[in-house]
Every structure is written in structure tokens, then in C-alpha cells.
């Protein structure tokens, strides 16, 4: 800790922050991409994220195994997704309204069941020390990559490939783009959408387990501070592409690390402005990539916001 990095601390902190902070955002946005590609919006993932964080932490505290916690987090997420999916399969039910209800239910239940687990300390998920080649402790710390981050990257690649090149991917896209076409093919759209929402919920549950079991690594009621909602919004930003979700999550994580990093090298004026960086960035990219001739490229045709 003797070495002073000077201004190099900023890019390093941004990279480190991108790796540390992005994982839950990545998992939620991947799950939401899957759900939205099937033609449904699940706004409840913020609640799923918080409940997943609580369930994973509680399981890790009780069992001593963080991996069991991740599994339980994913299962709880899937149950939340399943509930959303089943309710939305009833005709004339609005998926956005149910999503908001599920968000409130998820956070409320998590706060209720999570009360006894604020105090105990759970075992953390392991990290891979990819910074072993450097003598600098800052570099080693920044490149301590959690296994879930790697799994998230692989999941993004796998999902992109599956959507493009596999039969289940094709089915999902058909259901998402045209209910009538899907019916004509003999598919059952409601069933497929429910499955997609459940799997999407499982992704969000895993994201939650990262929050409570690795970074920041403890359960409390303010653990998410709206990250689940941001991640749902990022799906539009990422144009429903899993690979773009990965980049968007990294961008968001890195921009979030900018504020503290600038203060740590002595740029101390206007930190509230730097904290708004991720949002300003999002606005900027959305404006830059918008077009008057083509609206919402890549948006599934059956989404209730685009219909």
C-alpha cells in the first residue's frame, strides 16, 4: 500500500469498479432481456433482486455455504418470475402493473424475512485473483474477479448465441414478435412467456446473491438502492441484445466508480455531479443512437410499450 499511483488511480478505479459493481446489473438485465424477448415486461426484478439477496444471504448464514445461497437466490427468483408469468397469462392483465406489484411484494417480503439476518456475517463467494502478475496491491484488488462475473459473461455470450442460432431461441423470438404467428406454428405463447419470465427471475435472483454475498457483501435493506430498476431500463439502452447488456453493465459500473475515485485523487469539487455520471452517460448514448427514421431497433413486437 506504499505506492502512490497518482492520476493512474482513476482508470484503475473505473476498471475495478466496472468489474465489482456491474455483475448484479448484468444478471438483472440478462434476465429482463430474456423476458422481454418473449414479449413481456417484468418490472418486478428490483424486488426479485432484493429478495434474492436476502434469501442467498440467509441461506449462506444458516448453511455456511455461499454457493448454496446462490442456488436458493436463483430458485426464489424463479418462483417470483413464475408468479409474475402465471398472473400475466390471465387475459387482460397488464404486465407492467403486475411488475410494480411484484416489486413491492419482493422488497416487502425481503425486509420482513431479512430482519434477523442484518446482524450475522455470512461467508463470501470466492474471487479469482487475476491481478497476480502485478506487484501493486491496487491492481491486484481491482482485478479480483468474482466467479459470478465470469459466469455472467459466459451467460451473455451463450444467450446471444442461443437467441440467434437455436430452436428454443427462435421459438422465444417468434413468441415475442408475434403472438399470432406463434399460435399458427402450434406454440403456446402464454406458457413460453411464463417460462421466460421464470428464468429471467432466476437470473435476477443470482444478481441479488452477488450483492449480498460478494460486493458490498452484506445484507441490509438499502443493499440495492434501485439497481434492479436501472438494469431493467438498461435493456432498452442495450437494444435487447445480451452482448450489449454486458457492455452497458460495465459502463454503468465504471461510471459509478468515477465519483469516489476522483475524490480519492483530490478532485473534490462537485462530487454530486460526478455521481450523476452514469445517468448523464445513459442519456447521452440514448440521444446519440436515436434516430427519427427507425424507432426502437430490436424491440420485440409484442412488448406492451411498443404496441
Amino acid at each position: 500500500m506504499e505506492s502512490d499511483l497518482g492520476l493512474w488511480a482513476i482508470p484503475l478505479a473505473v476498471i475495478g469498479g466496472a468489474i465489482r459493481v456491474s455483475t448484479p446489473i448484468l444478471f438483472v438485465s440478462l434476465g429482463e432481456t430474456l423476458t422481454e424477448r418473449s414479449g413481456r415486461i417484468n418490472l418486478g426484478l428490483e424486488g426479485t433482486l432484493v429478495f434474492g439477496a436476502m434469501a442467498a444471504y440467509a441461506t449462506a448464514v444458516l448453511s455456511g455455504s455461499p454457493w448454496l445461497g446462490v442456488l436458493v437466490g436463483a430458485l426464489c427468483g424463479a418462483v417470483f418470475g413464475l408468479i409474475h408469468g402465471v398472473i400475466c397469462s390471465i387475459p387482460k392483465v397488464n404486465d407492467i402493473a403486475i411488475g410494480i406489484a411484484m416489486m413491492l411484494l419482493g422488497t416487502g417480503l425481503a425486509f420482513y424475512f431479512g430482519k434477523p439476518f442484518i446482524q450475522p456475517v455470512a461467508p463470501d463467494l470466492p474471487a479469482i485473483p487475476l491481478g497476480w502478475w502485478s506487484d501493486l496491491p491496487q491492481v491486484q484488488a481491482a482485478l479480483n474477479v468474482n466467479v459470478l462475473f465470469v459466469i455472467g459473461l459466459i451467460a451473455a455470450l451463450a444467450l446471444a448465441w442461443a437467441l440467434r442460432a437455436t430452436r428454443p431461441g427462435l421459438i422465444l423470438r417468434v413468441v415475442g414478435d408475434s403472438t399470432d404467428a406463434a399460435r399458427a406454428m402450434g406454440l403456446r405463447p402464454a406458457m413460453i412467456r411464463t417460462m421466460a419470465t421464470a428464468i429471467g427471475g432466476a437470473f435476477a435472483g443470482i444478481g441479488g446473491s452477488y450483492l449480498s454475498l460478494y460486493y458490498p457483501g452484506s445484507w441490509n435493506e438499502g443493499i440495492s438502492s434501485g439497481q434492479g430498476l436501472m438494469a431493467v431500463a438498461l435493456v432498452i439502452f442495450a437494444r435487447w441484445s445480451p452482448i450489449n447488456c454486458f457492455w452497458a453493465a460495465l459502463l454503468f459500473g465504471g461510471a459509478g466508480a468515477l465519483g469516489p475515485a476522483l475524490q480519492s485523487v483530490g478532485v473534490t469539487q462537485g462530487y454530486y455531479l460526478f455521481y450523476a455520471a452514469p445517468y448523464i452517460l445513459t442519456l447521452g448514448v440514448l440521444i446519440a443512437t436515436s434516430s427519427t427514421s427507425r424507432a426502437l431497433t430490436g424491440a420485440p413486437g409484442e412488448l406492451s410499450i411498443t404496441k
Binding site: 500500500m1 475495478g16 450483492l211 438502492s225 475515485a261
Partner: peptide
């Protein structure tokens, strides 16, 4: 929570 963790990391990185 996340910002507090980031701030702590930044402080340790700064020595």
C-alpha cells in the same frame, strides 16, 4: 451500500 464500498476501496487504493 455500493457507493460506501466503492468509496472505501478508493481510499485504500489511494494509500
Amino acid at each position: 451500500a455500493v457507493k460506501e464500498a466503492e468509496a472505501t476501496n478508493a481510499l485504500v487504493d489511494a494509500g
